[in-house]
Simulated scan of single mutants.
Amino acid sequence: MKKQILSVVLGSLVSSMAAAAQWGYEGAEGPSHWAEMSSEFDTCATGKNQSPINLTHMVKGDLPALKINYVKGGQQIVNNGHTVQVNYTPGSSLEVDGHKYELKQFHFHTPSENNIEGESFPMEAHFVHADKDGNLAVVAVMFKIGDFNPELEKAWSQMPVIAGDQQQLKHVVSAANLLPQDHNYMRFNGSLTTPPCTEGVSWFVMKGYDTASKEQIEHFAHTMHHNNNRPLQAMNARVVVQ
């Protein structure tokens, strides 16, 4: 199952998941219907630790530092119809509390999927990692409208406008340059925010944020033709630690 989930994370919707259901963000294909489309998507409705959430009522804890070792590795940009994703070459890692994950890809949602104290943001980036056993960790970074983002533009300048298209990037993108300087974070247990909504994902939401120009955020939104954020999910018995 973890190999199947990793295939979804990497953007290659393989096996029965692709054939079973063409999910989306609107109408009969939207989030409220995901669980109806395939038995493999049941967790989208039955799960108790679903993402995204509104991060609020945080509990103070002694969180370990995030050891982020990202090298330039964003070499391919893909429009998979659900998001724009930059695939990363091996060699970049996230280590937390002695546990090491490899950066696989990063992608975007507009508006943000997670909220912080009830605040939604114009755009959110998800840096998706997997360990050697297929366990997943996501670093989430909120984007505000502000200064033009030159690192983001390396990808945006070749953004495929047609679902299914991909491009080899002329200028390799550095994920490190898309992170805020302050690596303080909030942590919670959650899930994939897209089908099959698998749980057991470790989420690390940065307290700091990055910026992009209004035009850059609109470029992404227009390419998607619709919002691509899953609605907020119930917290249930979870806590957010900061």
Score class of each variant (00 low, 15 high):
Pro160Phe: 13
Met235Asn: 04
Thr89Gly: 08
Ala125Leu: 12
Leu66Pro: 04
Gly200Pro: 01
Met235Val: 05
Asp165Gln: 11
Lys170Thr: 14
Gln168Lys: 14
Lys170Ile: 13
Asn135Ile: 00
Pro150Tyr: 10
Tyr70Arg: 00
Lys48Thr: 15
Phe204Val: 06
Lys48Pro: 02
Lys207Ala: 13
Gln105Pro: 01
Asp210Tyr: 05
Asn135Ala: 03
Phe127His: 04
Ile116Val: 15
Gln22Lys: 12
Glu117His: 02
Gly24Gln: 02
Glu36Ala: 13
Ser112Arg: 05
Asn149Ala: 06
Glu215Leu: 00
Thr83Asp: 07
Val128Ala: 07
Ser112Lys: 08
Met58Ala: 10
Asn54Glu: 12
Lys170Leu: 09
Asp97Met: 03
Asn114Leu: 11
Gln166Lys: 15
Phe148Ala: 06
Pro231Ser: 02
Ala137Trp: 01
Phe204Lys: 03
Met1Pro: 01
Thr211Val: 13
Leu178Asp: 01
Gln158His: 13
Ala175His: 09
Thr223Ala: 13
Asp165Pro: 00
Val241Phe: 05
Ile162Trp: 07
Asn229Arg: 10
Glu102Gly: 03
Thr110Tyr: 14
Ala234Asn: 04
Ala45Lys: 15
Arg187Gln: 08
His183Lys: 09
Asn228Leu: 02
Phe204Pro: 03
Ala125Glu: 04
Met17Thr: 13
Ser7Phe: 05
Gly11Thr: 11
His99Leu: 00
Leu232Phe: 01
Asn54Gly: 07
Lys214Val: 01
Lys132Arg: 01
Pro180Thr: 04
Gly164Cys: 00
His126Leu: 14
Met123Arg: 03
Lys72Leu: 12
Pro122Cys: 08
Ser7Pro: 00
Asp147Leu: 07
Val139Asn: 03
Ala18Met: 13
Gln75Pro: 04
His57Ala: 13
Gln105Cys: 15
Ile68Met: 01
Gly208Gln: 03
Phe143Met: 07
Pro231Asp: 02
Ser92Met: 08
Glu199Val: 02
Leu55Arg: 13
Gly61Phe: 07
Arg187Tyr: 10
Tyr209Asp: 12
Glu117Ile: 02
Ser51Thr: 11
Met17Leu: 15
Asn49Thr: 09
His222Asp: 07
His99Ala: 05
His219Pro: 00
Val8Arg: 09
Glu215Ala: 06
Gln105Met: 07
Gly11Asp: 11
Arg238Asp: 15
Val9Thr: 01
Asn236Thr: 10
Met1Glu: 04
Pro150Cys: 10
Ala35Lys: 06
Val71Leu: 04
Phe41Lys: 14
Leu179Gly: 04
Phe106His: 15
His107Ala: 12
Met142Cys: 08
His219Gly: 09
Ile217Tyr: 00
